[in-house]
Amino acid sequence: MTEINFLHNNSQDQTFLLLGFQGLYSYRFLVFAIFIIVYILILCGNVLIILVIVSNRLQHSPMYFFLCNLSLLEIVSTTEIIPAILQILLRNGIRLSLFGCLAQLYFIGSFSTTESFLLTVMSYDRYLAICRPLHYSSVMHFRFCCYFVLASWISAFLIVFVVIGFLSQQDFCRQINTIDHFFCDFIPVLGLSCSDTSTVKMTIYLLSPLSIISPFLLITMTYVFIIRSVLNIQSVTGKKKAFSTCSSHLTVVCIYYITLFMVYVVPTNDRSLQANKILSLLYTVITPILNPFIYSLNNREIKTGINLSLNWKIKRKIKSQNNFG
């Protein structure tokens, strides 16, 4: 009986060469330092938000519970991408096995899909808070929020697993497959296949509405109702207060989906490979570093929590110095 493997036996020795940023080779140490700083800022910013939410006991509030999960997602997703980018910069490209390339593709795709689902859940939370405030506490209880988040993670990983399962059955004719990108992405990997890709493409076309288009449409629909409800509020103060509760989320949604649509939905025939890399950097690296600043600057509770944490540390330091003196 033939052993069934996840990958074909004849593709075990195949290698995928990620070229990364060949045009920046002369400045690779400078770019390396920039990515190190960006990575540290992403980690510190998102960890700070999680610590502020937990230390101030805000995690049982649906909005902050979802924000905590979003920050955790940003940490793990950038940890999957940026260390690989750093390796590419130091080595002027890295080699991955077929399994390694598909594994990277699986996790990056799963994290991106999870973010789409989490942003959708957060928009529904804002919709209930503004448009259905009397039903908010009865619907968005903590257990229901946990179900929402768990469903977002599990469904995202299952959807991408189906695509990777079909993609793993493809034959790649070359021993060394060159990808002019900084990570294994669906389109470049599929373009290297020398077998029939119709099944994989059909699977992507059927599942992409679930992972990108449907969440975007649901978010758009909720914000149509939110904007209509805000406009019906009589007082200017009430309008500002209602809008401030969803302005951060709306900003993140716009940044994330604009770049995501430009990479995967808009035709790429007239766009250069360098432009694709820049757009990919926007949703994989730039968005995670912007999220902590957007939520901390536009959210009163987060700013208050950060100030309280800083004041507590300062007081503790002064107290320890006085005791030492």
Rank of each mutant, 00 (worst) to 15 (best):
F142P: 04
G165I: 01
F148Y: 14
I36L: 08
P133R: 15
N276T: 03
A242E: 01
F21G: 10
T2Q: 05
V252K: 05
R28A: 04
P267Q: 09
N69G: 08
L48E: 05
I108R: 15
N269V: 13
L158I: 06
S309T: 08
I314R: 10
I4G: 01
I314P: 10
C44D: 10
L290F: 15
C146I: 15
R132M: 15
N291Q: 13
T114D: 04
T178Q: 09
I40Y: 07
P292E: 08
C254I: 10
D185C: 02
F65T: 11
I294H: 05
Q234R: 11
S55W: 11
F32A: 01
H249S: 05
D171V: 01
L98Y: 11
I53D: 00
L297S: 11
Q87Y: 08
F183E: 03
S214N: 12
Y25T: 11
V54E: 11
T284Y: 04
I130L: 12
F99Q: 11
R174C: 01
L105F: 14
D125F: 05
L51T: 03
M63K: 14
L273P: 02
I258N: 12
S320A: 13
R28E: 02
I286H: 04
I286T: 06
V163F: 01
I4K: 03
I294M: 03
L281G: 05
